[in-house]
Amino acid sequence: MDKPLKTPPPYPIASVDHALRAATILQMEGGATVAQLAERLDVARSTAHRVLAMLVYRDFAVRGEDRVYRAGPVLELAAHSQSLVSRLRTAALHHLHRVVDLLDETTNLIVRTGDTVRFIASVECRQSLRVGNREGMVFPAHRTTTGLLMLAELSDEELEEVYAAERYRDRPADRPDLPRLRTELKRLRRNGFAVNKERSERGLVAVGVPVRDQGGTALAGLSVSMLGVRYDPQRLRPLVATLEAAAQALGREFGSPPPENPKAAPRR
Rank of each mutant, 00 (worst) to 15 (best):
T107S: 12
M28Y: 12
E158F: 08
G114Y: 05
G30Q: 06
T113Y: 14
S155K: 03
L178C: 03
K6I: 13
R134L: 14
R180K: 15
P4F: 04
E29M: 15
A19L: 10
H18K: 12
T242K: 04
Q234E: 09
P10G: 00
Y69L: 05
E184Y: 01
L84V: 12
E158N: 04
S83C: 08
P172R: 00
E158C: 03
A79I: 12
G228Y: 08
L37Q: 02
V111A: 03
R237H: 11
K197R: 10
P238C: 01
V229N: 07
E135A: 15
T242I: 10
R190E: 06
V123T: 06
V34I: 15
N108W: 14
L129A: 12
Q127N: 06
T47M: 03
D232A: 02
H97P: 09
D174E: 11
P258R: 04
R182Y: 03
V43D: 07
L52K: 00
R230H: 11
A32D: 04
K263D: 07
E157G: 11
T107K: 09
L26N: 00
E29D: 08
L151D: 04
R134Q: 13
A19S: 12
R180N: 13
P257I: 09
G147N: 01
P258G: 01
A241H: 08
T145H: 04
L227C: 08
A53W: 10
C125H: 07
V123P: 08
A194Y: 03
M226D: 09
P266W: 04
G30M: 03
P257N: 05
C125F: 08
E135V: 14
V74Y: 08
R230Q: 09
R190V: 12
A245I: 09
T7S: 15
R267I: 13
V62S: 13
A249E: 09
Q27R: 14
G215E: 10
R98V: 03
A194W: 03
A38W: 14
A92P: 03
E124T: 09
I25G: 06
D213V: 10
D17I: 14
R58K: 13
P176W: 06
R126E: 07
Y69V: 07
D2K: 13
R126K: 15
E160N: 14
Y163A: 02
V211H: 02
L188T: 11
N191P: 13
Y11P: 11
L154D: 04
F193S: 02
F254Q: 01
G215I: 07
P259L: 05
V224G: 01
L75N: 02
I25A: 11
R267N: 11
E124K: 07
R182G: 05
V205P: 02
L55Q: 04
G31N: 05
S223G: 08
R50S: 08
K197A: 05
R50I: 12
D2M: 14
A91I: 05
P266D: 01
V205K: 04
T146Q: 00
M226Q: 11
L227V: 15
Q36H: 06
A249D: 05
L77E: 15
R182S: 01
A264Y: 10
H142E: 04
M150S: 01
N108K: 10
H142C: 04
L55F: 13
